[in-house]
Design a binder for these strands. Structure first.
Lengths: 251, 251
DNA sequence: CCAAAAGTGTTACGAATACACCCATGA
DNA sequence: TCATGGGTGTATTCGTAACACTTTTGG
């Protein structure tokens, strides 16, 4: 390929990428999903999953596509976090990135590095490798957002298995909000939600804690989450079938 | 046609723009600031103030710059709203836009169309001209955001003069939230805030309403707003390091 | 004086907090 | 058995809602 610059414009254009901050929870610590770059620049370094937006897709579609290609994770709720556009944030050229964030359960996905990623792996938020570009900053902003959402009442049930105990929720809530909520009040609050339904089973954890298991009424929960926050549902396959839906909430 | 496309890339790049939704309040209705386009495409049509992001500026800087160039408005709190990236949202080429929104007082700014704008003008949200591109959608999303913020406790004091009455706040709050809050409870709530300070003056309105005037402690208020929401302060001159003015004595 | 809107007080309710207590389990 | 953590009950606080009432001003 001799002529390798085929796309010309009258004015300079920045490149546009997407980056995804995916949070998970393993029962002990909060985790983020990272990839090991398989291409230059910074080949071999760790980074947020993401990549260039194609000309025939929206940034949301790009985020879902890249996440799936690079980590095999799909079907999560994605939310636009922020645009990062510092002029020198990428050494190659001017790159503006749209950051997304989502919650996922580590066990639910077959996390396999693919495509441009040599590897994909969950890391503890307390101890993850140095990230390339300004991805550390993006992670910080994402965590702030997560913290805000949690303090505002979000419970992050997307990060749990089908069956979960209130103490697990409590552990996560404490981790994220950094607040010292009374355990018993938290218990009552959670069990008062109509979308958290008790099962009769019991579960066993590390030391000796027999605790009641609960399950989630996804339908009710989704409604609550959707109206509380600005979340959009992105099923990876969505683009393939669904046309364009437009609904306006005019009164 | 000669060769007028000097900027070449190996892969296609979208163009990146910013658009600003500026809300104001005139005592009666909620207003937005629009410009009449002075250039093609859609020359003569109305649009949100905005334009292309330069290679040497962030999207925030671009938003402030374009807003100032096209409408003469500056020194407002800007907040990233969302990225709009539908593939066909611009007829010229692939254009991804970062939408911002801010609150301003209509009277404080000398709204003059400039640069790419033939004209700039405040319109009532109930009755504004058809907008180009997907700007109507952006306005809708911005209003939803505004509504969310107001329901969450924001009072939009940025939209008022130095002296204001509680009934004015109440009128705006009712307009935005569409909620029927008790006037008297609202009054007490507002006057309980430490950043809303009574003055001894009185003001006169349409029929016969003498009402107490209040003023705003900007410092305290800014703190509250900054931590409640994700707002960033952008003084237009900031980049050129011009000293900040606290009071505007101009009229 | 009267109408209309501003401003003040008083009570009620519900969610969030604080904390006391009992139960189940495993070592 | 005891230590540890799960689960339940109850009182208090506080912000908000509901609503009665007084004051001010223009006509």
């Amino acid at each position: 390929m001799e002529k390798n610059k085929e796309f010309s414009y009258k004015y300079p254009h920045p490149a546009v990428t997407v980056d995804c901050v995916i949070f998970g929870f393993d029962g002990k610590s909060l985790r983020i999903l990272l990839i090991e770059r398989g291409l230059e620049p910074f080949k071999g370094s760790w980074a947020l999953p993401g990549g260039f937006v194609r000309m025939d897709e929206t940034v949301e579609e790009a985020a879902m596509r890249e996440l799936f290609e690079e980590t095999n994770v799909k079907g999560v709720y994605m939310s636009q976090l922020s645009v990062f556009s510092e002029v020198d944030r990428d050494p190659r050229e001017r790159v503006i990135t749209v950051a997304f964030y989502a919650l996922a359960k580590p066990s639910d996905h077959d996390v396999i590095g693919g495509d441009d990623a040599a590897n994909a792996q969950w890391f503890s938020l307390d101890d993850y490798p140095t990230l390339v570009f300004d991805h550390e900053k993006i992670v910080k902003v994402a965590f702030s957002q997560l913290q805000r959402n949690f303090r505002a009442g979000n419970v992050g049930l997307e990060m749990f298995e089908d069956k979960f105990s209130i103490s697990q929720l409590y552990a996560l809530h404490s981790l994220v909000t950094q607040q010292d909520i009374d355990r018993r009040n938290f218990y009552k609050k959670m069990t008062s939600y109509e979308y958290i339904e008790p099962t009769s089973e019991k579960m066993r954890e590390t030391p000796h804690k027999p605790s009641q298991l609960f399950s989630l009424d996804r339908t009710t929960y989704d409604l609550k989450v959707m109206e509380s926050f600005n979340l959009y549902r992105y099923d990876h396959e969505e683009k393939a079938k669904v046309p364009k839906s437009k609904h306006h909430g005019k009164k």
